[in-house]
């Protein structure tokens, strides 16, 4: 464990909690992409199956369980409890275009041809693009609430912090996992445009709105 990974894990946790609290407090999931949350639920489910087979540490197991439970609870809030507020007309990204290529790529490029390993690899590829329905929704409506922007920032910066962690681990432990690195870089690059808008607008107290 190093500082980059710890900060990454907590910003990821922060993103999940911000989203959950925003929906819970406002009793509304307007502006939130249920499809992105659904993709994250698939990602965590496929990746954390190793909870049953492989113990890393108490920290690792507890975080996995928190990520899983809070993401499924958010999904329940969006699609059941507050479904009347769900903006489904703007959440129209076709997620099969993300799921199928991720599955095919996981079958082609993985560390080992086993069920758990392919599911892990699939989750890494799917996670790298899982934000697209949410970004698509923001671009379609042309704006995002400030709290949604904070959620997206925390969600994006987490993988960037992981990249710093992988560089650190490369030099200190001689450890590198190319699948994670390449997918993590793709994931971070997808946020660049958003990061720019976040820094130039949201941090200066303005609402995130896209130029017409």
């Amino acid at each position: 464990m190093n500082i980059f990974r710890l900060l990454g894990d907590f910003s990821h946790l922060g993103a999940i909690i911000i989203l959950l609290l925003k929906i819970w407090k406002t009793r509304s999931c307007a502006g939130v992409s249920g499809k992105s949350v659904l993709l994250y639920a698939i990602v965590f489910t496929c990746r954390y199956l190793d909870l049953f087979t492989h113990f890393v540490s108490l920290y690792n197991s507890v975080m996995k369980i928190i990520y899983l439970v809070s993401t499924y609870f958010t999904l329940f809030l969006i699609y059941r409890k507050f479904k009347a507020t769900y903006d489904r007309n703007h959440d129209t990204f076709r997620i099969e275009f993300l799921i199928l290529p991720s599955a095919v790529l996981a079958l082609l490029w993985n560390h080992e041809y086993s069920v758990l390993e392919i599911l892990w690899t699939f989750s890494i590829y799917l996670e790298s693009v899982a934000v697209l329905p949410q970004l698509f929704m923001v671009s379609k409506t042309g704006e995002a609430e400030t709290i949604t922007s904070h959620y997206l920032f925390a969600l994006g910066i987490y993988r960037f912090l992981y990249i710093l962690n992988w560089i650190y681990r490369y030099y200190t432990e001689n450890f590198i996992d190319w699948i994670s690195v390449v997918a993590g870089v793709v994931q971070t690059v997808l946020y660049c445009d958003f990061f720019y808008l976040y820094i130039t607008k949201v941090l200066k107290g303005k609402k995130l709105s896209l130029p017409a």
Partner: peptide, 10 residues
């Protein structure tokens, strides 16, 4: 460089 497939990250 050792390429491990032990997944110890989240």
């Amino acid at each position: 460089v050792t390429v491990r497939i032990e997944h110890d990250e989240l």
